[in-house]
């Protein structure tokens, strides 16, 4: 199983994402933003960071990187795509996912271990989790407040497309405590907290993030 990890200028978490892919049992394939080549990968991860310095809006410039046109095309054909943090922002700017991520409601950059609940465990990235399973993984961002209009929110909730919610206090003002969503087809997932930083207890708050990376292997092998 080949899982691509895209590096944009300013991406930070590509190495941890690649390490998590390997820990999950797949091969990690480095993809460069300027390449018009997906190197025959079976799935793609857009990792966290500050691509293009977050200039203009988070993810707004990355959306037009050459590799993204291929990702958008492949996602349309059903290829699994996971955007984490800045990757989630890029997916929203690319219109692969609805809504937008805006400045945290209290203006602070947050960096902490966050409990989330896996609400939808049927996407290719979440099948390793039990329904309503609660996990603790790092949350670290300045613009993580998920916003969308009422109609979009009703669609996301009505179609079971919220995949994860914050547990307890709302850390950033996201509507309906949304930490992650998926597209109508279910192959594209955006998640604000970072499962790739929680794949073993030596370097993370838990190993509970690993499920995202074992899920994708299972989804592909089936």
């Amino acid at each position: 199983m080949r899982v691509g990890v895209i590096t944009f200028p300013g991406t930070l978490d590509d190495r941890d994402a690649a390490r998590a892919v390997v820990a999950g049992g797949s091969e990690a394939v480095s993809l460069w933003h300027a390449d018009a080549d997906l190197k025959s990968v079976d799935a793609v991860i857009l990792p966290g960071g500050f691509s293009y310095g977050d200039y203009l809006r988070c993810g707004a410039i990355s959306r037009f990187a050459p590799v993204m046109s291929l990702v958008i095309e492949a996602a349309g054909k059903g290829m699994p795509v996971l955007g984490i943090c800045n990757g989630f922002q890029v997916l929203c700017e690319s219109h692969l996912l609805p809504g937008a991520l805006t400045r945290n409601s209290d203006l602070h950059f947050l960096c902490r271990d966050q409990e989330i609940e896996i609400v939808n465990n049927t996407t290719p990235w979440t099948t390793s989790y039990k329904a309503e399973e609660k996990i603790v993984i790092p949350l670290k961002n300045g613009e993580g407040s998920f916003q969308c209009d009422d109609k979009t929110l009703a669609e996301l909730e009505g179609e079971g497309r919220v995949i994860a919610r914050y547990v307890g206090h709302n850390p950033n003002g996201s509507r309906n405590l949304i930490a992650g969503i998926t597209n109508a087809r279910g192959n594209v997932v955006g998640l604000m907290p970072h499962p790739e930083h929680a794949i073993d207890e030596l370097t993370g708050p838990s190993a509970q993030g690993l499920g995202f990376f074992t899920s994708i292997l299972n989804a592909m092998v089936k």
Binding site: T102, S105, D106, Q147
Partner: peptide
């Protein structure tokens, strides 16, 4: 400008 219904934490600050 942010749409009127979108929270503007910077403006509030």
């Amino acid at each position: 400008m942010l749409k009127p219904e979108i929270l503007d934490p910077q403006g509030n600050a």
